Simulated assay, not measured.
Amino acid sequence: MKKTFAGIALGSLLALSGSLQAADYVIDKEGQHAFINFKISHLGYSWLYGRFNDFDGTFSWDADKPAESDVQVTIQTASVDSNHAERDKHLRSDDFLSVEEHPEATFKSTDVEMTGENTAKITGDLTLNGVTKPVVLDAKFLGEGKDPWGGYRAGFEGSTTLKLKDFDITKNLGPASEEVELILSVEGVRQ
């Protein structure tokens, strides 16, 4: 489920950039300016929050041709972090992410549809737990410009909701916990 988040988030960011010409960006993982977070209901009584700590990605963006944008993200599924060691061990098991068999989750964009001046729907193929499904990320462009270190950056946020069973995660957590929300905030550095 976390892999999916990461893929969706990156796709959203690419679609919304306001650059006037095509440019390639690398997600700023080293500076910790990118996050792939998730939340899922716990029995309908509270929210469980978590994130993936290790992921990489790139995007290409042309404001004049948003449909030609490209987003690719790879998440290391064993990096799942819910701030609880025993729960994280369970999330890595075959009940959920099966990290030994599927150490990576990937997202590859297939379509970008602008829905407003700074919003888009980014469709792509998410591979999680060995299953590939199309997902749609609701994305918002946050801004772009020069940074204090002589680089140029673009930032986005995005979200989507995934059904666990769509990715062969069949552990029964109750009716309130059949879906997980993926929330992404990504900053890319132009190459």
Rank of each mutant, 00 (worst) to 15 (best):
M1Q: 07
K2A: 11
F5C: 14
A6Q: 07
G7H: 04
A9Q: 02
L10V: 15
L10H: 09
L14I: 07
L16D: 08
L20M: 06
L20T: 14
D24S: 09
D24R: 13
V26G: 09
V26Q: 11
V26S: 12
I27S: 08
H33R: 13
H33T: 07
F35Q: 14
I36Q: 09
I36M: 11
N37K: 13
F38N: 05
I40G: 12
G44K: 02
Y45I: 13
Y45T: 12
Y45V: 11
S46T: 15
S46F: 08
W47D: 14
W47N: 14
L48F: 07
Y49P: 02
F52C: 14
N53R: 12
N53M: 04
D54H: 09
D54C: 01
G57S: 06
T58Q: 06
F59I: 14
S60A: 11
W61R: 10
W61P: 00
A63T: 03
K65D: 12
K65E: 10
P66W: 05
P66H: 11
A67G: 09
V71P: 09
Q72F: 12
V73I: 10
V73L: 09
T74N: 07
Q76H: 12
T77G: 02
V80A: 15
S82C: 14
N83E: 15
N83F: 07
H84A: 15
H84V: 04
K89W: 03
H90N: 13
H90G: 03
D94S: 06
D95L: 00
L97E: 08
S98F: 00
E100G: 00
T106Y: 02
F107W: 05
K108H: 12
T110M: 10
E113M: 11
M114C: 03
G116Y: 05
G116M: 05
N118H: 12
K121A: 11
I122V: 15
I122Q: 10
I122C: 13
G124C: 09
T127S: 15
T127H: 12
T127M: 11
T127K: 13
L128V: 15
L128G: 05
N129V: 04
N129K: 10
G130A: 08
V131F: 03
T132P: 03
K133Q: 15
K133P: 06
K133Y: 05
P134C: 06
V135N: 03
V135A: 14
V136M: 04
L137V: 12
A139L: 09
F141C: 10
L142D: 13
G143T: 02
E144Q: 13
E144S: 13
E144G: 06
G145L: 05
K146N: 11
D147H: 03
D147I: 06
P148V: 10
W149L: 15
G150W: 09
G150R: 04
G150I: 04
G151V: 02
Y152N: 04
A154N: 08
A154K: 00
A154V: 06
G155K: 08
G155Q: 10
F156Y: 10
E157P: 01
T160N: 07
K163Y: 07
L164K: 01
K165M: 07
D166S: 08
I169H: 03
I169W: 01
T170I: 05
T170H: 05
K171L: 15
K171P: 01
L173A: 08
P175I: 01
S177C: 10
S177L: 04
E178Q: 15
E181D: 11
E181F: 06
L184A: 14
E187P: 02
G188F: 04
V189Y: 03
R190P: 06
Q191D: 06
Q191V: 09
